[in-house]
């Protein structure tokens, strides 16, 4: 083996990573440029808001309900005697709004929404439907990508807001029925360290997660290669990459907005 061989491999790996990043940023830039083509994406926006947003609400509500119940029970288990019980309300509210509401919903929807977008666009790519759009003078990014990304950006904060509300409600119902707390105690705890910025923070996170899930799903679907196997690979990648980016963004927002 020639002594330069390992460096060749590293070099080609770095080049291919930069190449892939270039393609990704080119795609993101094309998506921004295609915003100008309102006539193409405008009529599709409401349809995708329903498919991405409204249809995702049941799963988000299911998740938030059980998260709220568990948070209340775990808080009471942790506080036993040492900390006043009304702090259960504080913990449920803060944790739902700041962290678990947006992050758990984001992770669940990266599976539901991200995988769905990647599989749909991937199938369209391998069956030449995207080429067919082009031959009929449609900008496929304006037709397929822009309305999905905008719908996710607009609907994710609404889904998370519903989820936060239901999670806190579930925590409250659990507290008054199981933990022998009163509504006044729970609400007192809830209000104790509440800041209006908490809601803003939660919505910023939800918006960014929606953007990332839709963008990654569209990118992976749009660049699918091969047949059914390629669609499977694109779908898996969309879920894994958007899940990872959600966690990275979660840390990023905590560093930048909570310090």
């Amino acid at each position: 083996m020639h002594w330069t061989r390992p460096f060749d491999s590293i070099g080609s790996g770095v080049l291919s990573a930069f190449g892939a990043l270039g393609v990704f940023f080119g795609f993101a830039a094309e998506s921004v440029r295609s915003l100008a083509d309102v006539g193409t994406w405008g009529p599709l926006l409401v349809l995708h808001m329903r498919r991405i947003g409204v249809d995702s609400i049941p799963i988000a509500l299911f998740l938030s309900t059980f998260t709220g119940i568990v948070l209340a029970l775990q808080a009471s288990y942790t506080f036993t005697g040492a900390i006043p019980l009304y702090f259960v309300g504080t913990l449920v509210g803060k944790t739902m709004i700041l962290e678990l509401g947006p992050v758990l919903t984001g992770l669940a929807l990266s599976g539901r929404v991200g995988a769905n977008i990647a599989a749909e666009l991937g199938t369209m790519r391998v069956s030449e439907q995207i080429d067919a759009l082009e031959t009929m003078a449609y900008n496929p990014v304006a037709y397929l990508v822009v309305p999905r990304i905008l719908a996710a950006i607009l609907m994710f904060p609404i889904i998370v807001a519903f989820g936060n509300t239901l999670g806190i409600t579930a925590g409250w119902i659990t507290s008054i029925n199981v933990l022998d707390m009163s509504t006044e105690q729970f609400v007192h705890g809830l209000q104790l360290f509440y800041k209006p910025f908490d809601i803003t923070y939660s919505m910023i996170k939800a918006t960014s997660f929606g953007f990332v899930i839709a963008l990654i799903g569209c990118f992976q679907g749009f660049h699918t290669q091969g047949g059914a196997e390629g669609v499977g690979v694109a779908t898996t990648r969309a879920v894994v990459i958007s899940g990872m980016l959600i966690l990275v963004l979660d840390a990023f927002w905590a560093f930048t907005l909570l310090q």
């Binding site: 369209m124 069956s127 030449e128 439907q129 080429d131 067919a132 031959t135 009929m136 003078a137």
Partner: peptide, 23 residues
């Protein structure tokens, strides 16, 4: 340019191997 290409494409019909109908 993209605009001119789209104008030209409306002069062309493309019949795909597997039809590529929007399912």
């Amino acid at each position: 340019s993209r605009k001119d290409l789209y104008v030209l494409r409306l002069q062309m019909g493309y019949v795909f191997q597997f039809a590529a109908l929007f399912d």
